[in-house]
Amino acid sequence: MKAEYAVETARLEKIYRSRFRGREVKAVANLTVRVPVGVKFGLLGPNGAGKTTFVKMLLSAVNPTSGAATIFGRDAREPEARRPVGYLPENHRFPTYLTGSGMLDFYSALSGMEERQRRRRAAELLELVGLKDWGDVRIKKYSKGMLQRLGLAQALMHEPRLLVLDEPTDGVDPVGRRDIRRILNDLTGSGVTIFINSHLLSEVESFCEYVAILNKGHLALEGKISSLVGGRGYRIGATGVPAEAMEEIRRSGASIFPGAQMDEFQVATREEANETIDRLRAAGGLIESVTASNTSLEDVFIQTTSSERAA
């Protein structure tokens, strides 16, 4: 059966306990996120929001305390679930004793690729990321930007269906950033889902279609970027909205800001605002406010994280 979501989590939670004092820190709390297949999805959040913990739970480097995560409908804890995933970690430490080609070969062998296929693909990708002449050079000679590009090649080696990139342009110069964006843009339309974890709002705003903002370990906002930014939009506040209706509205493309007092729904056009209001009322929700807005992703981010802070 074809999965609807590349990534789907349900009430995912991670609590770290200190070994001796028994103190608890909730790194990720009750997180439910859905990333549709084939989209470009950005995960934002201030430092310590739980973004990397969330990604590591998806890729089984961190064991969740509770909740579930699936990748293309398969339990993320199963090794086979990770076969279609290409991953570029943040602060990676590739083995410096390997050459560029050797590194690509090693990681793709772990992904189950055959030798002949690995050799062909490594040559292609080294050329794609501009490291054609560096394939036989040991990684310890590479600059930070070159390592990042090599890391991207590594993530693309086995032609993944889901690409998870943690701070992909970290340490890369502007030209390198443009090149990385170009490579990722070329994947658009190929059905590859791109999941970017970044603190660079402009990068996410210019590249991604969907965004989720994490704050203090929980989901502060999730939705389509086009309905959050880019000219005028409308924000509707409502109370008493059932979960099914929330899900239906999310599917229609609205962004949802869950709140303690009331839930807010951000849409891009007047028509969408009216449709959303109709849906909310039909589901038994009470409209509390409707306001016109004109925001950038930075405004949304600051508003979301600062209101959370105040709460």
Binding site: L59, E80, E90, H92, L110
Partner: peptide
Amino acid sequence: LEAGRISLLLSKPIT
């Protein structure tokens, strides 16, 4: 087990 190395290894389809 160094951070940054192990997370990439664990993301591969191996137990």
